[in-house]
Design a binder for these strands. Structure first.
Length: 364
DNA sequence: TCTGGGGTCCTAGGACCC
DNA sequence: TCTGGGGTCCTAGGACCC
């Protein structure tokens, strides 16, 4: 049984954006001041904290907190504006090390990946990987090793609290690992589901695993109920895939101050159409659907979409559709906080890209 | 001076068809 | 004249993840 159990390694970078900045700026890692990756609210209102260092966290500053509140909690904080291109470069280097040790890597985000792990459940190979990533990139990673991608991911979370940043859940130990954890630790359980579970008297993943599948489906709906039933027992039959095809490409923008200026909104949709168009072209994709998003000052959010007669990646066509949707559905007496454009129902894949971009590099 | 930006997935309800 | 039932497609909204 143990011999045949599949083995997955999940890699999660520690405080990734801050770690990159620290790798680029000697002394930053040991700076005693609160350091916040995020735009300074004194010059850029409506920002959020992307990452915070330990001194900032000690003051209650966490990812997702409004930067304005963070500044009140830490008036002497150092704000560093995010540098996404830089983080992408580090991400590529970290993932390259992982790909060197695994035949199959499924990247989940800029700083996370699940991988098939051919080295078994022993601690030495993952510790060697961690040491290698640290030596070659300066980035500290936490690693989870388990029989499924789901449990490996949760193990990587547990690993963050350990000195060696490694957590191994051996075959058969899944239930005892998951059982004591709070339901909120389960991937897919957010604030809303947590409150509902609490109302049903369910506090831990073990408590969830103790309920029948039918009861969970009744409480939470078909798909989510089944997911909770399986996941709470460590059951996850997904297979990894290295290449994920994008289903939508979008751009959105929050204005520093709410606006009712039609020209400002149209101009923003136009620039977003150009950005989305460029990304579609880069991927060799065309969209059969265009959607807009409007968020009003009171946070009420409206989305409207339309199908296109012909699939396109053309910026003019995307902008025209998006503007048309705005004219139809925007209530011009209401100030807009955020506007966004999304291209959906993507078709094309890589073939058209190679046809239309003859000098593109071969895939690899 | 509360609350970014890029995504995925699911569900309810209505239209439409046979 | 009370009012089938199943299937599919589409839309808008919302939860969730990093």
């Amino acid at each position: 049984m143990t011999d045949t159990a599949p083995c997955y390694l999940f890699l999660d970078c520690d405080r990734f954006y801050f770690a990159v900045e620290a790798a680029e700026r000697p002394g930053l890692a040991d700076d005693p001041r609160p350091v916040i990756i995020g735009r300074d609210p004194r010059t850029a209102p409506r920002g959020i904290v992307t990452t915070a260092n330990d001194p900032a966290r000690a003051l209650g500053i966490r990812s997702g907190l409004s930067a304005a509140i963070a500044l009140r909690l830490a008036p002497n904080a150092l704000f560093l504006p995010p540098r996404h291109e830089l983080y992408e470069r580090y991400s590529t280097r970290v993932m390259a090390v992982l790909r060197d040790e695994s035949p199959l890597v499924e990247q989940h985000s800029i700083d996370e990946a699940a991988s098939l792990w051919p080295h078994g459940f022993g601690p030495e190979p993952p510790l060697a990987l961690r040491a290698r990533v640290l030596a070659e990139t300066g980035i500290s990673v936490s690693l989870g090793l388990a029989t499924s991608p789901l449990v490996a991911k949760m193990a990587s979370e547990a690993a963050k609290k350990r000195a060696d940043h490694l957590c191994i859940v051996t075959p058969g130990a899944e239930a005892s690992f998951l059982s004591p954890l709070p339901v909120r630790a389960l991937v897919g359980v957010g604030p809303k589901a947590e409150a509902q579970l609490r109302a049903a008297g369910i506090e831990t993943i073990g408590g969830l695993a103790g309920r029948s599948r039918d009861e969970l489906v009744t409480l939470f709906g078909r798909a989510y109920g089944r997911y909770l039933s399986d996941a709470s027992r460590g059951v996850d039959h997904r297979t990894l895939s290295a290449e994920r095809v994008a289903k939508s490409i979008s751009a959105e923008h929050t204005f520093p101050h709410d606006t009712t200026d039609r020209g400002v909104l149209r101009e923003r949709l136009r620039s977003q159409a150009e950005e989305v168009s460029a990304r579609l072209a880069q991927e060799g994709l065309r969209a059969e659907e265009v959607a807009i998003k409007l968020r009003y000052a009171n946070w009420q959010t409206l989305t409207r979409q339309t199908k296109l007669r012909v699939a396109t990646a053309d910026a003019e066509a995307l902008a025209a559709s998006a503007t048309g949707l705005m004219q139809l559905h925007w209530d011009p007496t209401r100030a807009v906080r955020l506007i966004g454009l999304r291209a959906g129902r993507l078709t094309g894949g890589t073939k058209p890209a190679q046809q239309s971009l003859p000098y593109d590099e071969p895939p690899g």
